[in-house]
């Protein structure tokens, strides 16, 4: 992985994760860009059978995911932990409507963070999600991403739960300062 927290080199889980999501019927990939999601974003842009949806703020993705479900589709929201704070009130739609919801959150303010500005939201991310009714699971190591993602997909799309997969800075690498 690069020094910018960008998953590169030998990491195979981002491509495997994209394939897993597509195999489970996800066609709407919504995101505010983050280096940790670069592979998924690029794969969705190159995929003629998927929609790659660049958001101006993360809460749009919460509403979009509920709308996708209304239409019989499946969406995922890719965001950085700082974006979780932008979603708080919109998650009342997810919880109240019992909409299935799946988000992958690349963490900042976490393991090895070098920018003090990131800690407030990073350390509050799990609490905020849980306060709004989102189940939180975490992947720390490359070889557990697919197992954790598979569990989250089942919880979201088969049981109709709201689930966040936190991708630790141990996994995606801490940005160097």
């Amino acid at each position: 992985m690069s020094e910018h927290g960008e998953v590169t080199g030998g990491a195979t889980w981002p491509d495997e994760l994209y394939d897993l999501l597509r195999a489970n019927g996800v066609t709407q990939f919504a995101y505010v860009p983050d280096a940790g999601h670069k592979v998924l974003i690029n794969r969705s842009l190159a995929d003629p059978d998927a929609h790659s949806i660049s958001l101006t703020t993360e809460e749009e993705g919460v509403a979009l995911a509920a709308g996708a479900d209304l239409g019989g589709g499946r969406a995922v929201l890719l965001m950085q932990s700082s974006g979780v704070g932008n979603c708080i009130n919109m998650l009342s739609l997810t919880a109240g409507g019992r909409f299935p919801f799946l988000t992958f959150v690349s963490m900042r303010g976490d393991f090895g963070e070098g920018n003090p500005w990131q800690f407030q939201m990073g350390q509050a991310t799990q609490k905020v999600l849980e306060a709004m009714g989102v189940i939180v699971v975490r992947a720390n190591e490359p070889d557990e991403v697919i197992k954790v993602a598979s569990a989250a997909i089942t919880m979201a799309y088969h049981s109709g739960m709201a689930v966040a997969v936190l991708l630790s800075q141990r996994l995606i690498g801490a940005k160097k300062f």
Binding site: T27, Q28, G61, A68, G71, G73
Partner: peptide
Amino acid sequence: TMGLGPALAQ
């Protein structure tokens, strides 16, 4: 944006 979801799905 909630309207965008069904527009893409349908």
